[in-house]
Nucleic acid binder design. Structure first.
Lengths: 225, 225
DNA sequence: CGGGGTCTTGACGCCGTCTTAGCGGCGGTT
DNA sequence: AACCGCCGCTAAGACGGCGTCAAGACCCCG
């Protein structure tokens, strides 16, 4: 059964959606503000989140941003605002879909179906060990032997994207959009600088990298072993 | 580079979308009717399809239905009709997103980004193995036995285009536009030079190529086996 | 208000890649 | 037999990408 989290500050809207979703055999949880929404996502891992942008405490956009920092749950943004800027921002921040009020219930349900259709692949814990170095990506912990190695947020994000496709080439554009957003997909000097510091921390010999390999003109590859 | 197929019966719309998408570094192909759209999807496997519902020959819905019978490519349906029934039908038939005309270009681009990000690299691996030589095109990796072979970006692009149509002839014009853009589609000397270095790296006997065959006056063919 | 860590930005040198031009071989045509 | 188009091949120089460093902006926290 699909588990949906409805985030909206309007109790009537929460109620309407709950009733209708439950009638279609969805399991439903609701949240009236951003903080509790984030909490529910963290604790109960819903399959889909319906996120209203007009929330009392946090801006809906801010909620989305925070949410994406720890979860990849599909998010459908619901908003009264039709400005395309809002849509663009939400979608680029990691929203999976966008629907404007007023909407027909059938359309919403169809979008929920379309979005949750893709759900199912639960990713295993991402841990890599290479001669003494241990990278626990899901926990954001790195150790060599017994000593802890500290990586900055940007470094972790890069390592994460690369580790998720280990062995495969990840293009510069992809790394850039993953960390800085689509607008920065030509700023390759960012990559050069930050990949350098990643190597300084993780490579046995930073001047001759074997873990984080450059593919000139294309991207980088995380190639342990 | 993301490869987008634009399906619309209105030439002006096709043109507008092509120009704007190409300006953002998308590779674009267009189709004016359902049949050619299905053909392009079959032959060239785009990463995203923008599908207009009002087509001359087949109904857009019918196109979507047929398309889903053989491909899982992400489809964004574009339509002038705002009826929620249409949206529901399209989404349930396997469309990944729905956007109504008139739309802002930025929103469309954001939806393309969101869709292609979501689907990620689910494309089946394109791997070719011929007596000791292994070409993994999706990973951009080439090995003979245990030794890694390094290809440059241009070489990979050429190999990729050829491998995608393995066995079939690919015209010079097409290779040239794929790598250097439409403005260079007569610079056949580029092809001569770069095909030479591809052969030097990948062919067992570069002076008697069997994998990358020249079809004089027409183009090249990747013919493994 | 001050300080440590992080990120951005620009400059520089090195090195591999791409471009460009020229030459020779091969085959078809007249 | 001579010519012409097309292709393979080479090599030199132009070009651009990458790593590196350092200075300054920024931000969070005390």
């Amino acid at each position: 059964m699909t588990f949906v989290l409805v985030v909206d500050d309007d109790p009537a809207m929460r109620r309407t959606l709950s009733i209708n979703l439950r009638a279609r055999d969805y399991e439903v949880e609701t949240a009236g503000d951003g903080r509790s929404a984030l909490q529910v996502v963290d604790e109960r891992m819903p399959d889909v989140v319906l996120l209203d942008l007009g929330l009392p405490d946090l801006d809906g956009i801010a909620v989305l941003k925070q949410l994406r920092s720890f979860s990849r749950v599909p998010v459908i943004v619901v908003s009264a605002r039709t400005e395309s800027d809002d849509k663009v921002e939400a979608l680029d921040l990691g929203a999976d879909d966008f629907i404007t009020k007023p909407f027909s219930l059938e359309e919403l349900l169809a979008r929920v179906r379309a979005t949750s259709r893709r759900v199912g692949r639960e990713e295993p814990d991402l841990v890599v060990e290479v001669d003494g170095l241990r990278l626990d990506v899901t926990d954001s912990r790195a150790t060599r032997g017994d000593t802890e190695i500290h990586l900055t947020p940007i470094e972790w994000k890069l390592v994460e994207v690369l580790a998720r496709r280990r062995g495969r080439l990840v293009r510069q554009t992809e790394l850039l959009t993953a960390v800085w957003g689509p607008a920065y997909d030509t700023q390759t000097n960012y990559l050069r600088v930050h990949m350098a510091s990643i190597r300084r921390k993780l490579e046995a010999d930073p001047s001759h990298p074997v873990l984080f390999v450059t593919e000139p003109g294309m991207g980088y590859r995380f190639a342990p072993g």
